[in-house]
Simulated assay, not measured.
Amino acid sequence: MERAAIDVDGLSKRFGSLVALDRLTFEVRPGEVFGLLGPNGAGKTTVIRILTTILHPSAGRAEVLGHDVVREAAVVRRLIGLAGQYAAVDPNLTGRENLRLIGRLTRLARSRIRPRASALLHRFDLAAAADRPVRTYSGGMRRRLDVAAALVAEPPLLFLDEPTTGLDPQSRNALWELIRELVSDGTTVLLTTQHLEEADQLAERIVVVDEGRLIADDTPAALKAHLGNTVIELDMGDRRHAVTAAATIEGRLGETAEIEGSRLRLPCRSAFGLLRGILNLLEADGLAPRNVTVRESSLDDVFLALTGHRTRTGPATAGGRE
């Protein structure tokens, strides 16, 4: 049986009275993009910090490429790359100087440092700006350089913590494509994100974390299929009408609608028959919706169904749980 790239068993972390992680258990297979999904304060960054040996767990066990993150921390550090939420490159050095510095710090053979830096600058479309100070780079260029820096030592396992935070759509899509290329070359990627589209686009498997607890572990397709293939959305005009309509639908049709402001959301396997029954029922009671939408279910719907709220829930919780 193939050894897991990451093996997490009962992982917990406390900061005083705050429980940042509560007995998480999951595995990451070699050569996959694994998504760690959750809102601000869910515990995603705390997981990354433990797996990259920055923090010690309060309880439980974690292994990276077969090595314990506490007892064999030095070995783990030599095998991984990390690009955190914020660019860790020196703004006063050029892009080329940053990568060469990382090469020396990671004890890459001197004969390999220059060609490795040049190769990464070309791969990440930074060659034209290689000899400019990083402070002159755009946000997307800095983020690409940060990921390139994490790859200087050619690690088999790469941690990306909120890699597209602050990027415009074009830069985000370019970084997504680079991540896909890395995985096609054999790199295993653990990606944390609160962007559901990002997880859906990149991850082969997803763990959903909320308030430090694991609440789902499956493929994006399986998570959406579990909820239902289709979502009916009804805009009732105001919340009062939405509440009344939801009660009517549940009482007469036995279907539970999620209420968000003036909108009702009903996941279902097949929309046609259900939608016809709902519209007939609401019109008969003088509750015709202002607008009706039928669409495929998304990870946003899954997350809302699992947690009762969306991923964007405000600033990160103090004490390290992010």
Rank of each mutant, 00 (worst) to 15 (best):
A5P: 04
L11R: 04
S12T: 15
K13Q: 12
V19P: 06
A20M: 01
R29S: 13
E32V: 00
L36W: 03
G38A: 00
L51G: 02
H56C: 10
A62K: 00
A62V: 01
E63T: 10
D68W: 02
V69N: 03
V70H: 03
R71C: 04
R71M: 11
V75S: 00
V75L: 09
L79E: 01
L82H: 06
A87P: 14
A88W: 04
G95R: 03
L101Y: 14
L105P: 07
A109I: 00
S111N: 10
R112F: 12
I113Q: 00
P115N: 07
D125P: 13
A127I: 13
R132H: 09
T136V: 07
S138N: 05
G139M: 04
M141L: 03
R142S: 11
V147Y: 09
A150L: 09
L158G: 08
L160T: 01
T165R: 02
L167W: 07
D168W: 09
E177M: 08
L178R: 05
S184H: 14
D185E: 14
V189P: 08
L196R: 06
R205M: 06
D218S: 04
P220W: 11
A221F: 14
L227P: 08
T230R: 14
I232F: 04
H241D: 15
V243P: 05
A247E: 14
I249F: 02
T256H: 10
G261A: 01
S262K: 09
R269C: 14
A271D: 12
F272R: 12
G277S: 15
V292G: 05
V302T: 02
A305C: 03
L306E: 02
H309D: 09
T311S: 08
T311C: 12
G320W: 07
